[in-house]
Every structure is written in structure tokens, then in C-alpha cells.
Amino acid sequence: MDQMPKVQIYHNPACGTSRNTLALIRNAGIEPEVIEYLVTPPSKDQLIKLIQDSGLSVREVLRKNVDPYTELNLDDASWTDEKLIDAMLEHPILINRPLVVTDLGTRLCRPSEVVLDILPLPQLKAFAKEDGEVIIDEQGNRVK
């Protein structure tokens, strides 16, 4: 029997992009490990690995449109990557989302259809985002 591909999503159910990404994963017939990172934040080692594996800089994974970013003055260049990671661990809302991990890679899925690049299985049916934007057509093809 084939084993289900292992997929993890660092998810915020209050975020539309995160909900759309999770729905795209499920549209491929995959039930991922859902990690609500605001409830269960990654460890420092896990966060560093997520950032490294995504190919992004620490600042690219940092969420800027939330209160702690402004309150801590995180746009100040004196913040080192290590200090930024510590701030993200202390205030998990600073971690941009959704981050998805599969055997094919780790991606910050903004926009949500970025997840299609790392899913090991094809989409099973048509899919539209919550706002109605069609991502997968009736033939199962990605709409560009």
C-alpha cells in the first residue's frame, strides 16, 4: 500500500491565505500535519531550519504588518538575524505564514498557489480560492 506523502503546514486558521493553502493541500488528497504555530510555535532550531530550507532570509519570513513589528522597531537595521529569530519566538505572530514542508521543499506559500510547486500529488478537482479566484480548472490544470 502506498504511504501518504508527509506534508506539514504552519497554519493560522484566521488567515485566508493559510486556509486556501491548506485547502489546496487537501485538494491533492493529502491530509497534512497542521501546526497552529500561534498555539504551538516552532522551536528555535525548527524555525532556523524552516527559514534555511525555504531559501529566504530571516527578514523575508518576518511579518511586518503586526503590532509587535512596529512596537519593537524591527525595521531598524541594528536587529541581527539571531535577535530577529528570538523576537519571532517570543511573538510567533511575527512568523509569516503559511510555511509548508514536503519532501519536495519548504516554501512560504504567499500567494497560496506557491504550494503547488512542492506538492507530491496532483490536484484532484477544480479549486477556487475563498475570494473566487480559480487556481485549478475543471481538467485539473493550474490556471496561470
Results as ranks from 00 to 15, higher is better:
80 T>S: 15
122 P>K: 11
129 K>C: 06
81 D>Q: 08
13 P>M: 09
18 S>I: 01
6 K>W: 08
3 Q>A: 15
71 E>R: 14
57 S>M: 07
144 K>P: 00
140 G>H: 04
65 N>L: 12
21 T>A: 15
38 L>C: 02
27 N>I: 02
59 R>E: 09
88 M>H: 04
82 E>P: 11
101 V>R: 08
45 D>E: 14
16 G>K: 15
11 H>E: 14
60 E>T: 04
101 V>L: 05
44 K>A: 14
60 E>G: 15
40 T>H: 15
51 I>H: 07
61 V>D: 07
37 Y>E: 03
142 R>L: 04
84 L>V: 04
38 L>H: 01
44 K>G: 08
44 K>R: 14
90 E>V: 06
73 N>W: 10
5 P>C: 12
46 Q>S: 11
113 E>H: 15
83 K>A: 13
19 R>L: 14
11 H>A: 09
19 R>C: 13
132 G>D: 01
52 Q>A: 12
66 V>Y: 02
112 S>E: 07
26 R>F: 01
94 L>E: 12
136 I>R: 01
132 G>W: 00
144 K>I: 12
57 S>H: 05
106 T>C: 04
6 K>M: 14
107 R>S: 10
48 I>M: 05
96 N>M: 01
81 D>M: 09
6 K>H: 13
33 E>T: 08
80 T>P: 05
59 R>Y: 04
4 M>I: 09
50 L>S: 10
51 I>K: 02
124 L>Y: 02
62 L>G: 07
58 V>D: 03
8 Q>L: 11
137 D>R: 02
138 E>N: 11
35 I>D: 02
51 I>Y: 03
